[in-house]
Nucleic acid binder design. Structure first.
Lengths: 235, 235
DNA sequence: GCAAATGAGTGAACGCCGTTTACTATCGCA
DNA sequence: TGCGATAGTAAACGGCGTTCACTCATTTGC
């Protein structure tokens, strides 16, 4: 690892200037407002210059989405680490942080999770390799849950009710966490579905017909879910 | 109601031709591929002619989204009515039909639920007035559940655990269905969250990292939810 | 039956956009 | 000092939504 040359410094500065401009446009005008010409205008440049740094607009947006996902993951990891040593507290903190970030950054949430372009997606089909941002997001939630199960296996609902077909269908998830019984994997997915469903409905304003304060609903559903993981510990 | 004039017939025919073209572009190229010029080209016309029928591209897409939502609702109502007289069977049929339609029409699902443009949304903030397509979608699921509760109130989880804040937050939903206890309203929302979350994750390919066969997971989660509504009936 | 009004459609234009190409000036290194 | 790599430019192409002035057929009212 050698010191970056002057050229390299200028280049990375330009790259981050471009991405800053893209994000500014994203936040003020939505994903559609990101355009090479507008970014270049803001920087006092012409549009073709950006092609020295990104092969296309789509590549730029993809890169930006990756940064945003990283930012979200750091936010979540910080919240988890600040929540104390109890895995269940870590789950509460991480879930609340996920909602908070999403509600405060609705446009960014849309870019990362909204499947706006093919390829811009927090969940690539194959997110197995280490360092993959999708896997990183998953791990923030999975790690405390696995630790909770390791410390004190809780009485899992539906024990023994999961049939062979579902067991086989869950193969990708189970390969990554062979230590978990299939019922726990199932419970985990159900929790993630609830979390993702509630947050995206709130971000997209699809709960207003039913609920005035989405946070109250979120906290209640979160508590109900965690109760399932808390086999008679008397909390 | 008088018979439509020749002019009116030609006009409605042109309108539906335009929307057919828009949908064809939507299905083959995604929401971004809908363009006035492409629609006009397919019809052997020029783009400005479409402004005789729609005030803007956005209005056209909004109209198309409304049609698609109606189509989905009809699909769901047909499935519900075909599921027999038992409310719980109706819920199974409707939920499965929702997943089926969404998986088979992923681009349409995206246009209706994906919040692509401000205003294109199955869930307007105020969907109270009768005939509203958003309310119609809700009713397909709510009606059987209300009927189930009317026939045989089931032991509801969390009975008495819902605090005043959540009760107040659920006001919009409860005003529409005052006969339901707040715990049932809460359960209903939790079911819808699961349904919507699972289906949109499947449509957006955000489950591939965990599951090979999303239908198996869907059926399992659906069964687990319905079990909560089925207080000891021994089904 | 004929003139006026209405409606549908066209072509040209404006200002956006992504992207490519050819060209120029600058920077870093030998 | 000179040379290659790099960053930037201007011009152009084709596509887009939208507006405007205009033509032509159809309908309507007298």
């Amino acid at each position: 690892m050698t010191a970056p040359t002057r050229r390299e410094r200028l280049r990375t500065a330009a790259v981050s200037d471009i991405k800053d401009g893209a994000r500014r446009l994203l936040v003020t005008g939505g994903p559609q407002a990101i355009s090479l010409r507008a970014i270049a205008r803001d920087m006092g440049m012409t549009a073709p210059a950006i092609y020295r740094y990104f092969p296309s607009l789509e590549a730029l947006v993809l890169d930006l989405a990756g940064d945003l996902l990283d930012e979200l993951c750091e936010h979540l990891e910080a919240a988890r680490d600040a929540a104390g040593a109890e895995p269940i507290d870590q789950l509460v903190g991480t879930a609340r942080a996920f909602r908070r970030w999403s509600v405060r950054h609705p446009v960014e949430f849309r870019l990362v999770f909204g499947n706006l372009m093919p390829g811009v997606d927090a969940f690539p089909d194959d997110c197995g390799y280490p360092g993959d941002p999708g896997a990183r997001l998953g791990d923030v939630f999975i790690t405390p849950l696995v630790e909770l199960w390791r410390r004190r296996p809780f009485p899992v609902p539906l024990a023994g009710q999961v049939d062979a077909g579902l067991t086989e269908a869950l193969a990708p998830l189970r390969e990554k966490h062979p230590e978990l019984p299939v019922e726990v994997a199932c419970l985990m997915l159900s929790g993630w579905t609830m979390l993702y469903g509630l947050v995206s409905m709130e971000v997209y304003h699809q709960l207003r017909w039913a609920v005035t304060d989405p946070e109250a609903l979120f906290d209640a559903e979160l508590a109900a879910f965690l109760q399932q993981l808390d086999g008679g510990s008397g909390r």
